[in-house]
Design a protein around this nucleic acid. Sequence first.
DNA 1: AGATTGAACAATCTGTTGATTATTCAGAAA
DNA 2: TTTCTGAATAATCAACAGATTGTTCAATCT
Lengths: 205, 205
Amino acid sequence: MAEKDNVRCQIIEAAKKRFSHFGYAKTTMAEVATDCSMSPGNLYRFFPGKLDIAEAIATETYERDLEYLRKLAVAPNKNARERLHDLLFEELRRTYNKLESDPRAFEMATVISRERPTFANWMLANERRILVELLDEAERRGEFVAEDKELTAEMIQSATMKFRYPQLWSKLTLPKLERELEGVLKLIVDGLCPHHAQRPQVNAA
Amino acid sequence: MAEKDNVRCQIIEAAKKRFSHFGYAKTTMAEVATDCSMSPGNLYRFFPGKLDIAEAIATETYERDLEYLRKLAVAPNKNARERLHDLLFEELRRTYNKLESDPRAFEMATVISRERPTFANWMLANERRILVELLDEAERRGEFVAEDKELTAEMIQSATMKFRYPQLWSKLTLPKLERELEGVLKLIVDGLCPHHAQRPQVNAA
DNA sequence: AGATTGAACAATCTGTTGATTATTCAGAAA
DNA sequence: TTTCTGAATAATCAACAGATTGTTCAATCT
């Protein structure tokens, strides 16, 4: 079995090189197979299809990113608002820059999100787990309140949808997106209803 | 000039019929022209092109909708939260049902939003004006607080993006969208930070 | 037996052709 | 002169053939 995983890994590495040099559409299964010194048919013992190789690559790099995002979400020396800020901004900047600078990455993102909608759902579920951790810790410290944290996390994602795959949904530049995210974050954290924290003193006669 | 406006109107009516019966792509300028008993070339004295006819139709019906939305936003017997709720939900339900029940309307919406991105911006600007009215009135009554109302309106739109053209961005059903909008609305109104309104009494010794 | 191949098959892409149709504009009608 | 026409033009679309390529599987190898 260790051998099998090794081969899987080899295939992923070969495909990663091809995809990033020539793009997803322009690499053939035959080429990937030759790079691994095997026949095209043999690839199918390790992956159901071409798209699944792409998905495996995406999963791998995404999981690395996720690790870092979790660190931001639970950074001990920052308050909840800062941590939420860091989390959302890191996500925005990271994906924006990746898709902006690398047309191959953009192609892969487009293909996967079109052909494998469940992949996007899986990513959202992962991030939601991080958000719930953040909310839990925030409530413990009395910084945020939220009865149903799972639901609240979902709503935060809903409200920040626009910033998750920026260039698939709008043509805004990064600075404009950052300005908007800043505003939405403020809205989410403070809300529209007046806070009475500013005047906790008695004011009635 | 009144005559010219009349002809414009006649063209719009003819196109409206064709578009809604056979779809935008399947109606030709020649057909619209014959319906108006004129030559195809003559249409271009009234509209720069086919898309502009579609845009004129969309503008017309949208402006009627807008009238009603404004009424909801300033309904005198409701509080700010309810008005914001009604406004956003009416928008969601209206566009969802229109696009869901009428494939022709869906086609037109798709074409216009792809080919005329400024049209969507114009719609957003209109709705933003209504939101600002709502926020102004809400602040007057002490229900909401927001320093920069224009900016806040923009952020509300940003956070509720997903519900504006529901079926262009997700495959969610109306009930699920409504549930999500309800949650996002709560988030926007209440925020995550604890409100001290629940205990306005003295609590320090 | 299980692993691997590579030819066969099916699905998709590419380029091309012909037709359809949006748009223009020289000239006719008013 | 101004308004309108309709043939000419250019852009887009539909359909098709041929080639390319993802996928399968009977046969081969280990």
